[in-house]
Nucleic acid binder design. Structure first.
Lengths: 223, 223
DNA sequence: ACCTGAACACCGTTCAAGT
DNA sequence: ACCTGAACACCGTTCAAGT
């Protein structure tokens, strides 16, 4: 069906779109449609507009994705790092969790964050400054502070990808017969998580953040 | 140009393709072409074949990607975990590094590994069994062993994504003016890495692996 | 069984034409 | 300036036809 258009050609009297509106719709589309369903055509349709209209606001699909990435970065919570009354552990967990919440709210957005790392965007750089400042204040050598930041981001992004996967991603299935130790450990992990009422991926994430921070602090205190 | 075909229609006397050959060509294509260039059409062309020919060996593009992921998993080195004479630190570093080498050899393959986590494939499960077995032998509680494994994989995959990004990904550029502490720390990181003759991303990765393992061991020894 | 050729529905993007 | 409509080159995939 050729799908009758709600609007006839020519400039409408009042703006139909805005960049912000398009980005919002893009998040909604990423959430509801699969990765293959995230198309300019579908995005246009969700806004009740023809695809070419989008090109007045964005250079192309890649540009829409860049804008989404920027919007995600805006939502990260680094406030704990700047507040010296907040322990570093708490600040890190709060930051990591905001990453988590953002990606949980936009499952399909994770790939965007993960595969197109944050480049020199103003807001991200300010966040980095806050974090690095605190790391150094806690005893991290200046030339290792960005390494610590990068490795934390790697853990967080990798964990976000894990969180986006189905809960049974580690289930060995038939292959478990030949790998009994793993099969048993996996079952124990699942049982413990469900007893605690949280997802296994969340337990793993919390463990990783805690362990990585404690390992980093141990390094810092050795200098 | 309609591109004259090297072969006329009808079954050729001898097989022209094989699944293995297609996967090899897919890696080569992923390496040379950008993500947008990784198409069934391009893959077919590199094999001097028409696109439909590929469908005799794979169900579709997603299936080709699955096979690539499986091939990558085959190359991971978990041998250190099984050998008790190899210290855990060494085993972890060796494992992490093999991940690194595999993804470095196939930059475009990282997204495949990262975004489509390894499911119940026989070989992966065996690797997991080896690793979990060793973690438990080192004092890790059984119900936390898979959590430790998952968080390690998260760090490794996140780091692989970072390694695939340009070296100057963290450079603040103009935004550095308002974030002097970060700008200075970033410069110090770059200087130190280049003095050591390695990429900044590799230093970060080494730091993360070391710190995460030390943090995990500290947890294990508390029980 | 295994390849080509033709076809289908779809994509991202460009651009002229309308207001 | 901002939308539609038409068009272009391309994609993944299906399927009949040829050997």
């Amino acid at each position: 069906m050729p799908e009758t258009s709600a609007r006839r050609a020519g400039r409408p009297r009042t703006r139909v779109l805005s960049a912000e509106q398009i980005v919002d719709a893009a998040f909604e589309l990423a959430r509801t449609a699969g990765p293959d369903g995230f198309t300019m055509t579908a995005l246009a349709r969700s806004l009740e507009v023809r695809p070419p209209a989008l090109y007045h606001y964005f250079g192309g699909k890649a540009d829409v994705v860049r804008a989404m990435r920027g919007a995600l970065a805006e939502q990260l919570d680094v406030s704990g790092f700047a507040d010296e009354t907040v322990p570093l552990d708490t600040a890190v967990v709060r930051w990591a969790r905001s990453y988590r919440d953002v990606t949980a709210a936009h499952p399909a957005g994770i790939e965007l964050l993960a595969t197109t790392p944050i480049d020199g965007q103003e807001r991200s750089v300010q966040n980095y400054d806050t974090i690095v400042r605190r790391f150094i204040a806690e005893g991290c050598p200046q030339d290792a502070a960005v390494d610590a930041l990068v490795t934390f981001e790697a853990l967080i992004i990798g964990s976000a990808l894990d969180a986006a996967a189905p809960d049974d991603i580690m289930a060995p299935g038939d292959a478990g017969a030949g790998s009994p130790v793993f099969a048993a450990a996996e079952a124990a992990r699942t049982a413990r998580a469900s007893a605690g009422g949280i997802r296994p991926t969340d337990r793993s994430f919390a463990l990783g953040v805690r362990a990585l921070l404690s390992g980093l602090r141990a390094e810092w205190s050795r200098d």
